[in-house]
Nucleic acid binder design. Structure first.
Length: 479
RNA sequence: GGCGCUGUAGCCAAGUGGUAAGGCAGAGGUCUGCAAAACCUUUAUCGUGAGUUCGAUUCCCACCGGCGCCUCCA
């Protein structure tokens, strides 16, 4: 089965056919850098990371652009309120650029830990002011935008396709005056800001044909996506919460300016809930990646997220994460055993069916949960072979390669460098543990179980789990 | 009110018009000096009601419950 993906724009699964053969141009909305990344960011960027990895596995040359929003994102709606970053700067008694830099670094630190590959291009909104101004000028020239009192607004009614992404086609149904305050300078309630006039106290400001101001939130993505990926490109991703109005506005701006389709496939990941409710600062159930990683390892968090589908909502709880972690440990144990296995037998595993299942899963709209299920079934077979004779040289090599390619390269869920036991370790601490196990082995040989159990108990106390097998004892660190 | 999603075993979570993956937890067993690990066996008729169909958990409708968007949010 070739790759199929669910296109939000058409609301159905479609076969993936890139605009240029062999190449994929992909844009994913990046974070607004006014705070540390939360576990919702983790779900979104892990999902798209795996999507990128899978496209690359299929042989596509993927150009992955993910922006950093460091200006223009306002606290209220697109037209009122203060800039989020400027607000945070006030709270931290510093200036906006420092806030943006600080949280940008924090963001990449978190994403790196979670195993997400860096995007090929990570453009900043503040670094693309001329491109945004140019795009706004095009929209004014073509009659899709108008200036009012130093600000520029997009005229929604000038673009017939507005609403096609979110299904919100009838703009009259918006109840004026309830939640969207009509500003007198706007021609219609649903018009949105492309450029905002800067008040005198506004720190982030640039010169423009309309006076000193700053760009609106939506325009940056259009300008940067088109600059690096062209006026039409393959995939645009983002969180479901950005479907409207952000992505709707992106389509309107871009297609009104160019007269051609902006994006072929729109992908939206579902949201993280905590206790069944959306996570929010105001709800008090807000969890940052950094806090989550104090309790759980990065690969556990990643695995937990990938065990549900990217388009499904995911409810976060300690219990759910621990349950996922127990399963992941099983995978890791087997992988570790494979790495330490001696060539003692002639066993091989027919990997083709497993590979087919994995590929079919991923090709079915990036179904990572069923892809992972493949590994649990393979795991069982591997363990059986390991404890009944062992693998042949080729058999071992093939199985390890399978884990490395699919669990490692594609899903990124193999152990991330944490210490595990076994012989052959150069570390002095590891050697000391190996020595203790050797002494325990001697005690066991003399049927001195009191001593052998004492050693095992004491090791357990310091977090070292001992396991006896026919070939001897092994150990690993328990977290 | 408008748009959309969703309701599968104790918990998490896939999926299909022909009676349901995987994980966690539980039970029994094999192995073991004991344990751990591993392996084997075992636990659901898919929110409720009606309809289409030879047959529906999967399609249509209604209802009940949960969630998201409609204001910034991955």
């Amino acid at each position: 089965m070739p790759l199929e993906l669910y296109n939000t724009l058409t609301r159905k699964k479609e076969f993936f056919v890139p605009l240029n053969e062999g190449r994929v141009a992909m844009y994913v909305c990046g974070p607004t850098v006014y705070g540390h990344a939360h576990i919702g960011h983790a779900k979104s960027y892990i999902s798209f990371d795996v999507i990128v990895r899978w496209l690359r596995h299929l042989g596509y040359a993927v150009k992955y652009v993910q922006n950093i929003t460091d200006v223009g994102h306002l606290t209220d709606d697109a037209d009122a309120g203060d800039d989020k970053i400027a607000e945070q700067a006030k709270r931290e008694k510093t200036d906006p650029m420092e806030v943006a830099q600080f949280y940008t670094r924090s963001f990449y630190e978190d994403m790196d830990r979670l195993g997400n590959l860096r995007p090929n291009i990570a453009p900043l909104a503040t670094g693309h002011i001329p491109e945004q101004i140019e795009l706004i000028e095009r929209l004014i020239a073509s009659g899709h935008a108008y200036e009012a009192n130093g600000s520029v607004y997009f005229s929604v009614q000038s673009f017939t396709g507005y609403g096609k992404l979110s299904g919100r086609l009838n703009q009259e149904e918006l109840e004026p005056g309830t939640r969207i305050e009509i500003k007198s300078e706007k021609h219609a309630a649903s018009d949105f800001a492309l450029w905002k006039k800067a008040e005198s106290n506004h720190l982030m400001r640039w010169n423009s044909p309309w006076g000193v101001g700053f760009p609106g939130w939506h325009i940056e993505c259009s300008a940067m996506a088109m600059k690096y990926l062209g006026e039409s490109f393959d995939i645009h991703g983002g969180g479901l919460d950005n479907q409207f109005p952000h992505h709707e506005c992106e389509i309107a701006q871009s297609e009104a300016a160019t007269g051609r389709p902006f994006v072929k496939y729109w992908l939206h990941n579902n949201l993280v809930t905590v206790g069944g409710q959306k996570m929010g600062k105001s709800l008090g159930n807000f969890l940052t990646v950094k806090d989550a990683l104090k309790k759980f390892s990065p690969v556990m968090l990643r695995f937990f997220i990938l065990q549900s589908h990217y388009r499904s909502p995911l409810d976060f709880s300690d219990a759910a994460l621990e349950a996922a972690g127990a399963g992941l440990e099983k995978l890791h144990d087997t992988y570790r055993r494979l790495g330490e296995a001696k060539i003692t037998g002639a066993a091989i595993i027919e990997l083709a069916p497993f590979e087919q299942r994995f590929i079919d899963s991923m090709n079915d709209d990036f179904n990572s949960p069923t892809a992972i299920a493949t590994f649990f079934d393979l795991n069982r077979e591997v363990n059986t072979k390991l404890s009944s004779g062992g693998f042949s040289e080729a058999g071992l090599k093939d199985v390890l390669s399978f884990y490395n390619r699919f669990a490692g390269d594609v899903l990124g869920i193999l152990p991330g460098g944490e210490t595990t036991g076994g012989s052959g370790s150069a570390d002095a601490g590891n050697k000391a543990i190996d020595l203790l196990l050797e002494l325990r082995q001697q005690a066991k040989a003399k049927k001195d179980f009191a001593t052998s159990d004492l050693i095992r108990m004491k090791l357990t106390d310091i977090g070292v789990e001992v396991q006896d097998t026919k070939e001897g004892s092994s150990w690993k660190l328990k977290n």
